[in-house]
């Protein structure tokens, strides 16, 4: 199975966040808790759903990532755009803050 992390949008400001090891949430995908098998993925999703019930985030889901280049990148292009910001505005979004 591909390596996966959990992403969601934060309830209060809507920004893209990733679930970290301690079931916290970070704006940076580098901080995300990675899972590599189905059971770990399900356990992580259970924690994420609890965070949704606790009104921290909205609609969490698992995304595939690729760590082969040394840098952690989402596999799907849509997720890459979420992780960085609009491709047409390199001056805003996460890409501008990194």
């Amino acid at each position: 199975m591909a390596t996966q992390v959990i992403s969601a949008n934060r309830l209060g400001d809507g920004l893209v966040v990733y679930m970290t090891d301690g079931s916290g949430w970070s704006e940076r995908i580098a901080d995300a808790h990675a899972v590599t098998d189905k059971e770990a993925g399900e356990a992580a999703m259970a924690a994420a759903r609890a965070a949704e019930v606790a009104r921290l985030v909205v609609e969490p889901y698992l995304i595939d990532i690729d760590e082969s280049g040394g840098e952690r990148r989402p596999t799907r292009y849509r997720e890459l755009i979420r992780a960085k910001g609009p491709t047409v505005r390199p001056d805003i979004g996460k890409q501008a803050e990194l």
Binding site: N9, D13, G14, E59, R78, G85
Partner: peptide, 15 residues
């Protein structure tokens, strides 16, 4: 549905 009736979406990066 309540936020949508006020034009508020949740999009890729934010609301």
């Amino acid at each position: 549905p309540l936020r949508l009736m006020n034009g508020l979406y949740l999009q890729l990066h934010a609301y």
